[in-house]
């Protein structure tokens, strides 16, 4: 079963920049532990880090006049910033959550099943 794992953290980007080498190392270790945990239970399909929200552009829904505007910033203005994502393939939601516990503790991690379009 495939899952999207979304990692968000309060002021994630400023925190990363302010962190020192030891804190960065600690984060690297958590990512590695997560990758190992996923591989033990299934497979890692991919993952990437995202650029900071100020580089995002959002195409807004059309207004009454049918005009769609592009605004700076992410889809949802929240304190928590989406910093990266993984795509993993493991048996079930519980297993996915188990692996997700390995990620840095300051993160809020959303694990959401991906709808299977393969006939099966």
């Amino acid at each position: 079963m495939k899952f999207l794992v979304l990692m968000a953290e309060k002021d994630s980007f400023a925190r990363w920049e302010a962190a020192d080498a030891a804190e960065h190392e600690a984060a690297f270790a958590r990512f590695e532990a997560f990758a190992r945990a996923v591989e033990e239970r299934g497979s890692m399909l991919g993952g990437d880090a995202l650029a900071s929200p100020d580089q995002a552009r959002t195409l807004r829904p059309a207004d009454d006049a049918g005009v769609r505007s592009v605004v700076a910033g992410p889809y949802a203005e929240t304190v928590e910033q989406l910093g990266g994502f993984f795509l993993i393939d493991v048996a079930d939601l519980e297993t996915a959550l188990e692996a997700a516990r390995e990620l840095p503790e300051s993160y809020s991690v959303e694990v959401r099943p991906i709808i299977d379009m393969e006939p099966g």
Partner: peptide
């Protein structure tokens, strides 16, 4: 450099 480190960390590329 920090951006790239973060990206590498997520991709678990040491």
């Amino acid at each position: 450099a920090l951006d790239r480190l973060r990206a590498e960390a997520v991709a678990a590329r040491r």
